[in-house]
């Protein structure tokens, strides 16, 4: 399990290679990369600042990955989240998961992203024409969690 919270950018190719090198007998790798959109709730976004809770962010991401491992048989897991100043179209987040088969890899990666969006202590502040503004949380992100509710929850 590799968890990184950093201001530096990352290279998806390098992350993929690392996952692949350690994938052993796994037959599937799923990776997800999130980018800064240039348009959000209140118009165009020129820049973004991401604040986090040092220590708890890492702890919370570890917990989410451990929970994913309890649900699916997963091999390698990598999560990178960037913090600080970002501009439109930059990479914000990376989730990579390996597993024996694609179903576990797809579901594991999606589970990690859904819980990251709802429980990892990170906050976006967007720079728009009318100034810097904290982004409101979205109910659609909360609803995305309900698909995982049949079993245990991450708190």
């Amino acid at each position: 399990m590799m968890i990184k919270v950093q201001s530096a950018d990352f290279c998806v190719g390098e992350e993929y290679s690392r996952l692949r090198q350690n994938a052993d007998s796994d037959g599937a790798i799923v990776t997800f990369t999130g980018l800064v959109r240039d348009f959000n709730q209140d118009g165009s976004v020129s820049s973004m600042f991401i604040e986090h809770y040092p220590g708890m962010t890492e702890k919370s991401l570890m917990k989410i990955c451990s929970e994913a491992r309890m649900r699916w048989e997963l091999g390698q897991i990598s999560v990178i989240h960037r913090i600080g100043h970002l501009t439109a179209s930059e990479q914000i987040v990376f989730v990579g998961v390996t597993a024996k088969h694609r179903k576990e890899a797809f579901e594991g990666a999606q589970f990690i992203m859904d819980y990251l969006k709802n429980s990892a202590p990170l906050w976006k502040k967007e720079g728009t024409l009318s100034g810097m503004k904290w982004v409101d949380s979205k109910t659609s992100d909360e609803q995305a969690l309900t698909r995982w509710y049949e079993d245990k929850q991450v708190s």
Binding site: Y53, L116, P121, W123, W134, D136
Partner: peptide
Amino acid sequence: VAFFPPVTGG
């Protein structure tokens, strides 16, 4: 003890 608004990372 920390207090914060709903999270918006990802």
